[in-house]
């Protein structure tokens, strides 16, 4: 927005909301929504504690392993579907199904099979992140201009060369977009998993704060998590722009 010829940055509006939050926090609603200033103080209090560090470590570990699996399985699967009609027709219904299914209903299944541990959280992350990576990779491979592949062939490229020199690169912008969307879903997955399992990572903290009505602690944790998620999202977008610089010019 422009005020008096000066371009206000987009996120500056958050200051308005922060002030509003502070004011609401000092009313009766402060019982549920404590003042922002108190929450920020609390953030500095809980972040250095060992229980927070441990929760962060466990969550981070589950998050990264889950994403790694989703990417390592998702991209080849997507490329396969993009190149083979048969594989595509066999697998696409399932990918679409998992993309629109209420995955929170599947977490209990993972829980009863794999127990209430880290494995369950990792699998939840995979379940949330993988399908969009598959679908985007598939779309990217399908959108590769045939003349680009024909060009490589005309210069005598073999199957492997065509794959490593053309397919991966030509589909890169879509693949990166898929990974970004997957990572955002993974953040939601890791939190949903921990809320449901509730004895792992931040799940434990949520449980403790909630059962002792420590609203300031709870909000402090939320603030940290939301900030993490937002920064991660921005970083992924930056990365996507950096490596997918040619996306718009195709």
């Amino acid at each position: 927005m422009v005020i008096a010829g000066y371009q206000l940055p987009m996120m500056a509006a958050l200051i308005v909301w922060a002030v509003l939050w502070e004011i609401v926090g000092h009313t009766e609603a402060g019982f549920i929504l404590p003042p922002l200033s108190a929450i920020i103080v609390r953030v500095f209090e809980i972040v250095p504690t060992p229980s927070f560090g441990e929760a962060l470590l466990i969550t981070g570990r589950a998050f990264f392993s889950g994403n790694a699996i989703a990417i390592l399985v998702g991209i080849p699967l997507g490329i396969l579907m993009g190149r083979s009609v048969i594989a595509d027709r066999l697998l696409l219904p399932w990918v679409n199904l998992f993309l629109s299914a209420p995955l929170s209903a599947l977490v209990p299944v993972i829980m009863v099979i794999f127990g209430l541990g880290e494995t369950t959280i990792i699998l939840t992350v995979v379940l949330f992140a993988m399908w969009i990576i598959v679908l985007n990779t598939r779309a990217g491979v399908k959108a590769i201009s045939p003349s680009l592949v024909e060009m490589a062939r005309s210069f005598g490229a073999n199957e492997w060369q065509a794959f490593t020199r053309i397919y991966i690169w030509a589909a890169l912008p879509e693949i990166l977009a898929g990974i970004r969307l997957g990572v955002i879903r993974a953040v939601k997955g890791v939190i949903i998993g921990q809320l449901l399992v509730s004895v792992v990572g931040f799940g434990t903290l949520f449980e403790v704060y909630q059962s002792h009505f420590l609203m300031e602690h709870f909000w402090a944790l939320l603030l940290v998590l939301f900030a993490f998620a937002f920064i991660l999202n921005e970083l992924m977008a930056r990365l996507e722009k950096h490596f997918g610089y040619f996306a718009a010019s195709r």
Binding site: V187, I191, I192, L222, A229
Partner: peptide, 10 residues
């Protein structure tokens, strides 16, 4: 971008 599910307890 945020894991809003964490708001459910609130």
């Amino acid at each position: 971008a945020a894991p809003l599910a964490a708001l459910i307890p609130v």
